[in-house]
Design a protein around this nucleic acid. Structure first.
Length: 426
RNA sequence: GGAGAGGUGGCUGAGUGGUCGAAAGCACCGCACUCGAAAUGCGGCGUACCUUUACCGGUACCGUGGGUUCGAAUCCCACCCUCUCCGCCA
C-alpha cells in the first residue's frame, strides 16, 4: 500500500516506477481519485454535521418534553436524510476505488536499485567458492533415483506433477538440512524460532501483498483460508494491527515450514526434478525494524542467508535484482544463487527483500517510541535462509562422486551421526 | 458439534436510543506544595482522516459487517474472537 500523501506531493516519482512496470498513467489516476475522495468526503462530512446538529436539537426538545418542536425539527431533517445517504455512499465508493487502485500497484524500488527489464539486468554483487570440477555431473534426479531414494512416479500417482517422495537417508538429509539452518539462524544470528500456522486468512495474505493480485499463485482451503506460500506470511503477520514499542525492535523471527505454491504461471518451467514443486520446506527469516534501520538490516539478513551456503561449502553468487525482476512488495532484493553442476549455472536458492513500509501500511503495523506522541509504520524484511528443497538439490549435485554417491557436508555431521555418504555401503 | 457467558480507551470497569468520544479508578504527563522525594491538590491525557499557514472546526471509530431510526456503545441480523460445561478428537 502506498502513502497517498507522498504520492500527491511527488507523482512523477511514482509514475516513473509504475510506467516501467506497465502501469503508465496510474499515478495520475490515483491523484485524480484522491482529489475526488477528498472533495466527496468534505461534502459528505458537512451533510452529516448538519444532520447531527438537527438530531441534537431534537434530543434537546425531547428532553424538555417539547414534542411539537421535536416533530417540527424531525420534519425538517427528513429532507436531509436522502442527501446524507447519497453522500456517504459516494464517499465509500470513491475510497474503495482508490484503495483498490493503490493495492494493485507495486512498491517503489529503492534509489540504488539498478534499472533493468528482466533477470539479465541483475547485478552480481559478489561471488563465493569455486565450482568443483566434476566430470559429467549427474543431476539430482538421476542421482536420487539411482540411489532408489527419490521417487517422482509414486508422488505423481498420489498427488500429480511437481511433488516428490524422498526416502531413507535422503529424507533424513532433508530433515538434517532444515534443522541445521534453523539452529544456525537461532543460535548464531539471533532469530527467534517460531512455529506458525500454515493456514492463514485473507487479512494476513493481503497484508503480505499476496492478495488480491496473486490469489492464483496460492492454494485455498474449502473454508476460505490460504495455505502459506512462504512463512513470510505468518511471521510478518505477527505484527499485523499492532503498535510495537520501539525498544522491542529489531524483532527477528524465523520458522521452518512447508510452503505451498500453485505455480500457476510456471507451467512448462523446471518440470524435471524438485527445483520447482507445489510443496517444499523453507527456513524463512523475517525482521521487523524501525524505518531508519531497514537498509542495514537488509545487508545483515543477506549475510545470515549466505552463512548457510558458506557453512555447507556450496559455491554461490549474490545478485542485486534490477527494477524489472523485483517482486511486487519489494523495495530492494538480493537473490542468492547456488551453483548447480548439472545445469552448469547458478540457480536461485534464496531471496532477501526489504519491503520498507509497504507491507506495514497494508497490515497497519506501527511502532511507537516510549513517551513520544504518534506512531510510525515499521519496515518489514523477509528472506529465505534457505529453501531446504533446493539446498538438498545443491548438496546432492555438488557432493556427488563418480559412483553416484553423495558425501555429507562437514557441517551436517552433527545432524547425521556416523553417516559420511549416502549410497554404497554408507 | 451442542449449551451458556462475554468482547467498551494503555489497563480495570460504568454506561434507561438523545450534549456519550464515552463515568470512575489505575497508569502516564505538567503545575503547585517540598531542600528533595513520597503523600496530597489542580490541570492535562485515545486513534485516523478532512478543512486550515496556524488556531479553531468537522467526520468516523465502543469485536467486524449490515440494518432500524431524525439520532445507535445502547435495538435487530449475520459473522469473528475469547471463556465455561458437554460431546468428539491427534
Amino acid at each position: 500500500m502506498h502513502d497517498i500523501r507522498a504520492l500527491r506531493e511527488n507523482p512523477e516519482l511514482y509514475e516513473k516506477a509504475w510506467a516501467a512496470k506497465g502501469r503508465s498513467g496510474a499515478a495520475a489516476e490515483a491523484v485524480a481519485l484522491d482529489a475526488r475522495v477528498r472533495a466527496i468526503k468534505t461534502a459528505s462530512e458537512q451533510a452529516q454535521a448538519k444532520r447531527n446538529e438537527f438530531s441534537k436539537l431534537i434530543g434537546q426538545a425531547k428532553a424538555r418534553k417539547d414534542e411539537a418542536a421535536a416533530q417540527a425539527l424531525m420534519a425538517e431533517v427528513e429532507a436531509l436524510k436522502a442527501n446524507v445517504a447519497a453522500e456517504t455512499e459516494a464517499e465509500a465508493a470513491a475510497i474503495g476505488a482508490l484503495q483498490d487502485l493503490l493495492a494493485s500497484l507495486p512498491n517503489l524500488p529503492a534509489p540504488d536499485v539498478p534499472v533493468g527489464a528482466d533477470e539479465h539486468d541483475n547485478v552480481e554483487v559478489r561471488r563465493w567458492g569455486e565450482p568443483n570440477a566434476i566430470a559429467s555431473p549427474k543431476d539430482h534426479v538421476d542421482l536420487g533415483e539411482g540411489l532408489g531414494l527419490l521417487d517422482f512416479e509414486a508422488a505423481s500417482r498420489m498427488s500429480g506433477a511437481r511433488f516428490t517422495v524422498l526416502k531413507g537417508q535422503l529424507a533424513r538429509l532433508e530433515r538434517a538440512l532444515g534443522q541445521f539452518m534453523l539452529d544456525m539462524q537461532t543460535q548464531e544470528h539471533g532469530y527467534l524460532e517460531v512455529s506458525p500456522p500454515l493456514l492463514v486468512n485473507d487479512a494476513a495474505a493481503y497484508g503480505t501483498d499476496k492478495l488480491p493480485k496473486f490469489a492464483e499463485d496460492l492454494f485455498q482451503t474449502t473454508d476460505g483460508r490460504w495455505l502459506i506460500p512462504t512463512a513470510e506470511v505468518p511471521l510478518t503477520s505477527l505484527v499485523m494491527g499492532q503498535i510495537v514499542p520501539e525498544e522491542e525492535l529489531p524483532m527477528r523471527v524465523t520458522a521452518l515450514t512447508p510452503c505451498f505454491r500453485s505455480e500457476a504461471g510456471a507451467s512448462g518451467r523446471d518440470t524435471r526434478g524438485m527445483i520447482r514443486q507445489h510443496q517444499f520446506y523453507k527456513v524463512e527469516l523475517v525482521s521487523i525494524v524501525a524505518p531508519e534501520d531497514s537498509e542495514a538490516e537488509h545487508e545483515r539478513m543477506v549475510g545470515c542467508a549466505e552463512a548457510i551456503l558458506k557453512a555447507l561449502n556450496l559455491p554461490f553468487r549474490t545478485m542485486l535484482l534490477c527494477t524489472g525482476d523485483m517482486g511486487f512488495g519489494a523495495r530492494k532484493t538480493y537473490d542468492l544463487e547456488v551453483w548447480l553442476p548439472s545445469q552448469g549455472k547458478y540457480r536461485e536458492i534464496s531471496s532477501c527483500s526489504n519491503c520498507g513500509d509497504f507491507q506495514a501500511r497494508r497490515m497497519d503495523a506501527r511502532t511507537k517510541k516510549a513517551g513520544e506522541k504518534g506512531t510510525r509504520f515499521v519496515h518489514t524484511l523477509n528472506g529465505s535462509g534457505l529453501a531446504v528443497g533446493r539446498t538438498l538439490v545443491a548438496v546432492m549435485e555438488n557432493y556427488q562422486d563418480e559412483q553416484g554417491r553423495i558425501a555429507i557436508p562437514q557441517a551436517l555431521h552433527p545432524y547425521l551421526p556416523g553417516l559420511t555418504h549416502i549410497g554404497g555401503e554408507g
